[in-house]
Write a protein that binds this DNA or RNA. Structure first.
Lengths: 251, 251
DNA sequence: TCAAAGTCTGACCATTTGGTCCAAGTTCGA
DNA sequence: TCGAACTTGGACCAAATGGTCAGACTTTGA
């Protein structure tokens, strides 16, 4: 870290195009993002002006670059400058859009949150358990294949002790989690599922699917393959689904 | 990063008590550590001299402090000074024992490697599959409870793309992995296990068990409990074992 | 007992880096 | 068309940090 104490909160001099994810109190913004994650996520009314549009695009590019850099180097390892270069603008210019590294980080986290939360949100009591679980596994595995950086970013944040995400975990995420626990509970009660501890089942599915993104290097080094190989993806879906549904003990 | 280009390789002026984990080419040292990981890990003949003993103790303390700091902040987030303070000595003094941050990081990784590798190494074809798997799960979960920092450090390293561990992954770890894949294969062929893709089974067990260490914050936030609660630990062992062996589909 | 070897510290240095500032464009609406 | 608002980048600043150095203090072994 460097520069004038990252803690000092000083209002920006000029009116920057403050968009969704920049509130200084990152936690609050994240909680809000998480809460609306289940919903269809209305695209925040895209402004019409040509200029505003370009600005929005620029911010998108920054966010994308930041995600990829943060996910690989972590908050500390990533430098604003590296992100700026990756996004194709100057450091000072990036700082015009996002007033600080932390703010950018929060924005990235915030953006990832909905994608990360979405699959579980689709869990419905009315569904067939096996199908619902299969769908969840496939969706999460697809996420691990298509947006591994999101998964990695969250893993990184967890490993740090989730200083920014903790309020989300304790609030909106716990709400979703509890709801889904209830769903699983109901399935078990109805005899539609073997007796399992619902929380552990959910943890297990997360662990199994995210592993392919977070430990992709290891998976690739040991098996020589990755989810981007179509065959391997199918194999993984099949293996995880079979494991969760039927286990490995022979009948 | 800072200071004179971390790349410049210059020999230390004085003879520092060079111990097991400091070779500049971290990769090589790590590979060696991994290879001897299966064995009983002979304690490298503890030197007798009172002085040498104290030195060894100091190094142990440094390694411990470094593990906990690195595991929480990552290589970039951790500062030598923070580690030194945690170990109870001055930065300059720490640098006397480990000539650079990277060297220290490698030493920590190296030390963790054997612990990380051990449980899988105990997999034997002659065992009963269910028992062997159960034992593996329990051992890994115990690791997640007793040494979560090791698991986290490795997770962090994987997320970075494993620049230092890649040779280990491709070499010694792959060797162990392949051997265990063969064991599982044999079990399946003998009908002692349902037909599974062995690599995915191993990945699954790792994922399931390490999750409780790497995502401990999340687990705690959502379930309110952690592996250090005896009851929760038992629950986790039971849940993961049941899942892997029998799945959740009702019979 | 005494010098050689080992251990430890505070001062110091150079680089990286988060962030600021200002002046020079650019775009937009009236 | 013109001024106000918005963008952009180069120079700059100060803190943090990895690492060095020379000298002081200890321990050890002959």
């Amino acid at each position: 870290m460097a520069g004038p104490s990252a803690k000092s909160v000083k209002p920006p001099r000029r009116a920057a195009p403050r968009a969704s994810g920049q509130s200084r109190s990152g936690a609050r913004a994240l909680v809000k993002a998480a809460q609306s994650a289940g919903e269809t996520a209305a695209p925040v009314s895209p402004p019409a002006g040509r200029r505003a549009q370009a600005g929005e695009a620029r911010k998108g590019a920054i966010l994308g670059a930041a995600l990829s850099v943060f996910a690989r180097l972590g908050l500390d390892g990533a430098s604003i400058d590296a992100i700026a270069r990756a996004a194709g603008l100057s450091k000072a210019n990036l700082l015009y859009y996002y007033p600080s590294k932390d703010a950018l980080y929060v924005a990235v986290l915030e953006q990832g949150l909905s994608r990360w939360l979405a699959p579980l949100a689709r869990f419905r009591r009315e569904e067939d358990p096996a199908e619902a679980i299969g769908a969840l596994i496939e969706a999460k595995l697809a996420m691990s294949r298509d947006h591994p950086e999101v998964s990695r970013l969250f893993a990184l944040e967890m490993l740090r002790g989730a200083p920014l995400l903790k309020p989300v975990l304790a609030g909106p995420l716990k709400a979703v989690f509890d709801a889904k626990v209830a769903v699983v509970q109901a399935w078990v009660a109805a005899g539609r599922l073997a007796p399992v501890e619902p929380p552990h089942l959910i943890f297990s599915i997360w662990a199994l699917t995210q592993h392919y993104a977070d430990f992709a290097v290891q998976v690739r080094a040991l098996s020589g393959r990755s989810l981007s190989d179509k065959g391997f993806m199918e194999e993984a879906v099949a293996a995880v689904t079979a494991l969760v549904l039927d286990g490995v003990r022979p009948r």
